[in-house]
């Protein structure tokens, strides 16, 4: 069953320049995806591609000048984009939980960690304080914090990065969320700690039948942790589909070059096709946003780009989706100097 459905979401930053003219940065341009219970979707892309903005748009955490200009976000049959703040607040931290990249800045430095968990539970469910405390200890145990009773009395600064991320995860689980949004949950952590956290997330996702939206720029995490992948570029999902399909047959030139730039595929001295400036969001080109960087680009790319379904569930936003194998690159890394 579809838990979360995002349809044609457009988020713009509307501001005024020095001459008081309205400027619009088109940060999200028609993002659509859906997520079923128990599934994990990995959203990848370079800095500024709109990964985190997608998450913020979904949960209504946008701050001016960013705003959703069109599109819909449907969570369990309810439209979130026009939901009153009070109702959204009930969902956030309740059915929709979020874990962010920097765990230490997300904890209140002046409150003991156990108390922070208890508060979150109290706000959403009320009930006796003792029950919330019990729940907090259980969740701390579930995320593998040793000796939860004494850890609950720790201050955030006393925790290591991995431990702080576990506390945040425990906090996210306090109210049995149906959807977990994890924004780069392991980026600042060491590989061995990352392995611990990812294994934990995987177990918890299965145990609580949560849907997880995992934002990351690490293709290794996506390859081994996610069921589906969505690749973002300049505010659009350029390719999406089941992880094995997309890695085996990347249909979009951007995905293809991204995967070829990973240490596993990259060979020194080979011609690269990636790099270059991301397009100017204030002034997006007509048609494909990748055209200035794409080695396959031709005049065709100035026309509106079709979202081609190459295989069931595997979509790519490209005129030449699925035909890259027989196509020769038409230009040789024109933007190499600007990488």
């Amino acid at each position: 069953m579809t838990l979360l459905a995002v349809k044609d979401l457009h988020t713009h930053f509307v501001s005024r320049d020095a001459d008081n003219r309205v400027r619009v940065a088109k940060a999200l341009n028609g993002v659509s995806f859906s997520l079923d219970a128990g599934r994990t979707l990995g959203i990848v892309g370079e800095t500024g591609a709109g990964k985190s903005l997608t998450a913020q748009s979904v949960v209504g955490l946008l701050r001016p000048p960013a705003r959703i200009v069109s599109g819909s976000v449907i969570f369990e049959g309810q439209e979130l984009t026009n939901m009153p703040a009070a109702e959204l607040n009930d969902l956030r931290g309740g059915d929709i939980a979020m874990v962010v990249q920097n765990p230490r800045t997300s904890l209140d430095p002046l409150t003991r960690v156990g108390e922070q968990l208890v508060r979150l539970h109290q706000v959403h469910t009320g009930g006796p304080q003792a029950l919330s405390q019990q729940r907090a200890l259980e969740m701390m145990e579930a995320v593998g914090i040793p000796d939860p009773l004494s850890r609950a009395r720790s201050w955030p600064h006393e925790l290591s990065g991995g431990m702080a991320q576990r506390v945040l995860l425990a906090m996210a689980l306090m109210n049995d969320p149906k959807l977990l949004i994890a924004d780069e949950p392991t980026t600042g952590l060491d590989v061995t700690v990352q392995a611990q956290i990812l294994d934990l997330l995987r177990d918890l996702t299965a145990q609580f039948n949560m849907a997880t939206m995992m934002i990351t720029h690490d293709l290794g995490v996506v390859a081994h942790f996610c069921d589906d992948i969505a690749v973002m570029f300049a505010g659009s999902i350029v390719e999406s589909g089941p992880v094995p399909d997309v890695f085996a047959e990347p249909a979009h030139p951007y995905t293809r070059s991204l995967i070829n730039a990973t240490p596993e595929r990259f060979r020194m001295g080979e011609k690269r096709t990636l790099g270059g400036q991301p397009p100017d969001l204030y002034n997006l080109p007509l048609g494909c946003t990748l055209q200035s960087r794409c080695t396959y680009a031709s005049d065709t790319c100035k026309a509106t780009v079709p979202n081609v379904e190459i295989a069931p569930g595997h979509l790519a936003l490209c005129h030449f989706a699925g035909q890259l194998a027989e196509k020769q690159p038409v230009k040789d890394q024109a933007s190499r100097n600007h990488a």
Partner: peptide
Amino acid sequence: LSAHLPADPMVKVNRHVL
């Protein structure tokens, strides 16, 4: 090395988490 995730879903990783 076992904690390292290669960016290729076809490579099986034999995890030994410390």
